[in-house]
């Protein structure tokens, strides 16, 4: 079973760069988050188009020239679940 992930209200996020790290203000929740470049890229890819974990990992691997492996995929999955708990992303539908 595979989920499709989308970002919630990317335009309502305030993003500022501080020496290569990113701070993000989530207006709806009034919360501040600290992201590295990969963390922000996840949100920006999902803002362009909702994606499955596999396609998201492919895009990230290409962008950062990282070899795709299962460890990387598991790490991104954990990040998505964390983002979901924070209300930054949600699963829009699932395919059997």
């Amino acid at each position: 079973m595979e989920f499709i992930w989308r970002v919630n209200y990317f335009s309502a996020l305030r993003v500022e760069s501080l020496e290569g790290e990113f701070i993000v203000f989530q207006r709806e929740a009034g919360k501040t988050h600290f992201l590295n470049e990969i963390g922000l890229k996840i949100l920006s890819i999902l803002d362009q188009s909702p994606a499955t974990l596999d396609s998201l990992c492919r895009e990230l691997s290409e962008y950062f020239t990282l070899p795709p492996d299962t460890h990387f995929s598991a790490q991104i999955n954990r990040t998505l679940q964390r983002y979901e708990a924070l209300g930054l992303v949600s699963r829009v539908k699932e395919n059997a």
Binding site: L18, E19, G20, E21, F22, I23, G30, T32, F34
Partner: peptide
């Protein structure tokens, strides 16, 4: 100290940040 770390420390240290 990296700016991002300074931000984190300051924001969590501010009494009325939230």
């Amino acid at each position: 100290l990296p700016q991002s770390e300074a931000f984190l420390l300051l924001a969590s240290n501010a009494v009325n940040y939230e």
